[in-house]
């Protein structure tokens, strides 16, 4: 329980740092750090497969996608950066306060849910659940992946000069 609490606190701190840091690159790194901490939490909750997916895809692939997008776009100038820094402090300093207030409010007001006695699961193997119980999900994943591939192809397609 204490380990879970420490990990959850670290997760929130990493997320806050991701949102509040000035540099966009550090923000992407912070997001990867958040993913790593989340995957550790998932591992501690006896879900190794989801943890591996989270670690490899969210902490790896998505960070690469973000950093590639940043490298393809133009960085802001030093003057713009200074101006944005002043502006950012005004906009972002409320966030830690709001988070602390909401956290305290939830901790004081919410009560533990009334859970029914546990029943044994129908299937405990992820592979069986994935391929036999949730077959429609797999079909949906394939369709979404194809839609994503077509979307990216259309977006990056070079237009003819006549257009």
């Amino acid at each position: 329980m204490i380990l879970t609490l420490i990990l959850l606190t670290l997760l929130v701190l990493a997320a806050v740092w991701t949102v509040m840091t000035r540099s966009l690159m550090m923000s992407a790194v912070g997001l990867a750090l958040t993913s790593v901490i989340l995957s550790i939490i998932i591992f501690t909750l006896n879900s190794p497969l989801a943890g591996v997916f989270e670690l490899s895809v969210c902490a790896g692939l998505i960070t690469v996608v973000f950093i590639s997008t940043m490298s393809l776009t133009k960085p802001i100038t030093r003057t713009e950066f200074k101006k944005q820094t002043k502006d950012r402090i005004k906009r972002y300093w409320y966030m830690p306060v709001i988070i602390i207030l909401i956290g305290l409010g939830c901790a004081l007001m919410l009560t533990a849910p009334d859970l029914k006695p546990l029943t044994p699961a129908i299937e405990n193997d992820v592979r069986n659940v994935m391929w036999k119980v949730r077959q429609t999900d797999v079909l949906g994943q394939i369709i979404i992946l194809l839609a994503g591939v077509f979307g990216v192809v259309v977006l990056f397609k070079e237009r003819k000069k006549n257009d």
């Binding site: 006896n46 879900s47 989801a50 997916f53 895809v57 699961a121 299937e123 193997d125 659940v129 994935m130």
Partner: peptide, 15 residues
């Protein structure tokens, strides 16, 4: 106690 189902849904979510 439905961790297998939850993992399956998380994998879908990640995709």
């Amino acid at each position: 106690n439905r961790i297998a189902l939850a993992q399956s849904m998380v994998i879908t979510l990640i995709v």
